[in-house]
Amino acid sequence: MKRFLIADDHDAVRSGLRAVLEQRADWEVVAEANDGGRAVAAAIENQPHVAIVDFSMPRMTGVEVARRIRQYPLQTEVLIFTVHNSSLLAQQAFEAGARAFLVKSDANKLLLTAVESLLQHRPFCTRSCRGELDHHGSGARDGNHELTPREQIVVKLVAEGYSNKSISGVLNLSVKTTEAHRAAAMRKLGVNSTAGLVRHAVRARLVEDDDDRSGLRSR
């Protein structure tokens, strides 16, 4: 059973999201919250697989909720849900530890795709904001041509949530070699954090996007 937390200060939004999610027999909304503080507390108590968190809430923004959740040893993936189609907010969300950014106007067609991505520990970003991130994001240089094939694979696995040790096992490399590939990719892309690598992977389509995964909506 996949567990969900919904945090939004509008009752109607929470009810709508619950109705969509619980259409799946193996999905369950285990907690709701109407402000940021309660959202963090509910995440700690219930340890959901995915927390869908509104950006604008009383007491604490969704980005701050994501940052607080990352401070605990939780496996919860955070999706920032917002009316603001803003590359700046998307960048802030990823830097805070969220792994998905979805504009509410896209929810009807992309919510389930975004959630499915998170359940597989893959990042997701509304396409319109992904395009803006190319120009206003972390400062990473465009394209994958600067990365070696092995570095591209390492970046892809990092974005999918693999640790250096796990990547080493998948690629049959030493941890030291994996760390070297990761450091080289960060240097070439001009990023200094895991969030920067995730943003690059989303922009460069090293991970599947909403179009690639559109077939999930028909399941």
Rank of each mutant, 00 (worst) to 15 (best):
V29P: 03
G169N: 11
A185V: 08
K2E: 05
T126G: 13
E77G: 01
A183Q: 13
A51C: 05
H136I: 15
N144A: 15
A159R: 06
Q92W: 05
N34Y: 01
L89E: 09
L17R: 00
K156G: 09
S15Y: 01
V63S: 03
A180G: 00
S138G: 11
L111C: 10
V198N: 10
A140M: 12
A96E: 10
P123T: 09
L197A: 06
V30F: 10
S86Q: 12
M57W: 04
N164L: 02
R130N: 12
E28D: 12
R99F: 04
I153A: 13
V20T: 11
L157G: 07
T76Q: 00
R219I: 13
L110G: 02
D211T: 15
V103F: 08
E208N: 06
I69N: 02
V30Q: 02
G139F: 07
G16Q: 01
D26L: 07
D212V: 06
E32H: 02
L111Y: 11
N192E: 08
G215F: 14
L118M: 08
T113C: 12
A42T: 01
T61A: 05
A66G: 08
Q23K: 10
E116S: 14
E132M: 14
T113Y: 05
G16I: 04
Y162M: 03
L79E: 05
R122T: 14
P73V: 10
V53P: 05
N34D: 13
D8L: 00
V30P: 07
R130M: 15
T113L: 10
Q71I: 00
G161S: 06
S163Y: 08
A19V: 03
G16K: 01
E28M: 05
Q91W: 04
V20L: 12
L157M: 15
R67T: 06
V65Q: 04
V65I: 08
P123S: 04
V154I: 12
G62K: 02
T76R: 03
V154Q: 06
A19S: 07
G16F: 01
G62E: 06
T178M: 03
A100K: 01
L79Y: 03
H200V: 07
A51D: 03
S138A: 13
E146I: 15
A51E: 05
V170D: 00
A42C: 02
R213I: 06
T178W: 00
A183S: 14
L216V: 13
F81L: 06
T61Q: 06
G16A: 06
A41I: 09
G196S: 07
R67S: 14
A43C: 12
T148N: 05
Q71A: 15
T126H: 02
A96I: 13
V198A: 07
N108F: 09
V53M: 02
D9Y: 07
L118D: 04
R219P: 05
